[in-house]
Design a protein around this nucleic acid. Structure first.
Lengths: 184, 184
DNA sequence: GTCTATATTGCGATAGAC
DNA sequence: GTCTATCGCAATATAGAC
């Protein structure tokens, strides 16, 4: 348990990668096996079914999500900037898992939906602590979701472009609110 | 052309409905035919392939999208409120088409991606005209995308909930900006 | 643990009657 | 214009050798 077989990890990484950049339908057992460098039979030794593959991905998403929330709280640029910039373009492996899970959501895997909701709730809590206003935090979370929508659609360039454009607006709005107190 | 057969329309509506609320994989030719009340052969008379079905949906999305942009510009509550509230919960048929197209995007249909980009560009232009600031307009567009992400994931209740929560924040931010001029 | 078959199912698409 | 019947294929999963 503490040291799962290497092949298993490679299979999981291949599955996440194909789902994230070609879609779930492209991630057939054969395609995943080929990308991981094993045979179909070899894959099925580690993951007895396609569903098991999805479950494995969900488990890793939850684990990596916890780590990301910790990074977010400790980020020098602040939790808000960390959250939004990584929503548009996360260099880390979490992005691939998140995009993959978001796509899998659409073919009925309820565990993926729950895992995403779990992580999003934690991101939201960290945002609340950072801005001190739960409704503003929800707005920021929605902005992150909007950036992610483009990443999920496979247009990460557009997501990054959008983030660059709106970042100063978000900053100025937060500043204005902090200094002025703001209505409502 | 001006009066396409009724069966064709019913098939298209069934396809959009199944994709929107059960996912694209569930929308098999047989399932679509059953929901539309025709046989598989009957369906294939109108749409010779699955791809033709997708193209038909894209065409309707573009037509309905134009109509929505017109409604948005004419909305009594203002273009921003119209856009964001309908992002969370559009009572109209457009929502189904938009969600369906967003899902289809993930199985490689490039025409769906292009159609969505086309409509989104028009929404953005209408937002720009309403708020008089192109970067703020992009931020609002991203907020709409974020609300839609939840609708696309099949959790429209959550999308509506989020909109109710953040609506006053958006309003107050817009007001503050309008009266104060705002930095940047 | 990993491989090469192979069984099985479900889908898109065709053919041709009505 | 709509139907029934059927072909061909691709994908999941199994069986059993190595």
């Amino acid at each position: 348990m503490s040291r799962p077989p290497v092949a298993r990890e490679k299979v999981l990484a291949a599955f996440a990668a194909i789902v994230a950049d070609e879609g779930e339908q492209a991630a057939t057992m054969e395609a995943v096996a080929a990308r991981a460098g094993v045979s179909k039979g070899g894959l099925l030794y580690h993951f007895g079914s396609r569903e098991a593959l999805v479950e494995g991905l969900v488990e890793r998403l939850l684990a990596d999500g916890e780590a990301d929330v910790a990074d977010m709280r400790a980020a020098p640029e602040g939790a808000v900037a960390y959250y939004l910039s990584t929503s548009a373009d996360s260099p880390r492996e979490l992005n691939e898992l998140y995009v993959a899970a978001s796509r899998i959501t659409q073919t009925g895997a309820d565990s993926a939906r729950q895992a995403l909701a779990h992580i999003e709730a934690q991101w939201l809590r960290a945002l609340e602590e950072a801005v001190g206003d739960d409704r503003l935090a929800q707005l920021l979370a929605v902005v992150g979701d909007g950036l992610y929508l483009h990443a999920i659609r496979g247009d990460q360039r557009r997501a990054v472009e959008l983030w660059r454009t709106i970042a100063p607006v978000v900053t100025s709005l937060l500043d204005a609110r902090r200094s002025g107190g703001g209505p409502a």
